[in-house]
């Protein structure tokens, strides 16, 4: 019987999350004034949803929440709808300044603090998958924690790496980077080979990567990377592995 208990834990977490969704008091919500002739309010947070209301110039609207690049707003008369980022930018704050919000642009990408994403690729010719999360320390340097799994015909490799990335030209949209890391590699032979006496091995791992990242669109970065891994085995020879991978990252 599979262990279902982790789902109970998750279910209670989700319930707690739902319960903790605080409704902000109106006083805490920011307000903006419409400067253009009008602003279109959609029924949902996407262009596909129809415009159902138009708020006129001079009206104050309360900004309730955000989903991707859409903002849920409420007019003074109580109409609630979704306004897109480009429209919200044309409104003014109480000091008459144009409204500034994070927009996932290349500028805000350069000021990011965190990144996470996933890769797919090939490690010595077998499919590999990785997930990673990174903390950006300066515009050039970031640390990253990653976990990968490569599934071959004869064995399954898993490895975890802690690494430091150096991006030499962070101001370029297409920008090369270098990475050095260390971690552990676990190799497990396939079930049909276990009888032949093979066992799961664990060895320390050093990794060096060279890659290029490309800021593709809003909040989205693509990475192409070549990684050279050196497994420090307790046999006579160390094992050298090569990996090519393509992935994406989103940032905050």
């Amino acid at each position: 019987m599979a262990s279902w208990s982790k789902f109970y834990a998750l279910a209670s977490l989700i319930l707690a999350l739902t319960a903790s969704k605080t409704v902000f008091a109106d006083d805490d919500l920011p307000e903006v004034q419409i400067e253009e002739q009008f602003i279109e309010m959609h029924t949902g947070p996407a262009l596909g949803f129809p415009v159902f209301h138009v708020a006129a110039k001079g009206e104050w609207i309360t900004v309730i929440k955000r989903r991707t690049n859409w903002f849920k707003v409420r007019t003074d008369k109580g109409k609630e709808g979704w306004v897109k980022l480009d429209d919200l930018r044309l409104t003014l704050s109480s000091e008459g300044e144009a409204v500034k919000v994070e927009d996932g642009s290349f500028d805000s990408f350069q000021q990011r603090d965190f990144e996470f994403g996933a890769y797919g690729g090939a490690l010595e010719g077998v499919p590999s998958m990785s997930v990673f999360a990174g903390w950006v320390i300066t515009e050039n340097i970031a640390t990253e924690l990653s976990y990968s799994q490569a599934l071959g015909d004869f064995s399954e490799n898993r490895y975890a790496l802690l690494s430091v990335t150096h991006t030499t030209f962070p101001e370029w949209k297409v920008s090369p980077y270098f990475r050095l890391g260390f971690g552990q590699l676990q190799t497990k032979p396939k079930a049909n080979l276990v009888q032949s006496g093979e066992e799961t091995r664990t060895s320390d791992l050093l990794a060096g990567s060279i890659g290029v990242r490309y800021y593709l669109a809003q909040n989205f970065v693509v990475r192409l990377e070549y990684q050279n891994l050196l497994a420090l085995t307790d046999r006579d020879d160390n094992e050298e592995l090569e990996e090519w991978k393509l992935g994406f990252a989103v940032f905050f």
């Binding site: 902000f24 006083d27 805490d28 919500l29 920011p30 307000e31 903006v32 104050w60 900004v63 309730i64 929440k65 955000r66 989903r67 991707t68 903002f71 704050s93 109480s94 000091e95 300044e97 409204v99 500034k100 919000v101």
Partner: peptide, 14 residues
């Protein structure tokens, strides 16, 4: 007293 968007953090649900 209007609360300005430039200082307030908006609850984002992504």
């Amino acid at each position: 007293k209007r609360r300005d968007i430039n200082q307030a953090s908006i609850d984002s649900e992504n």
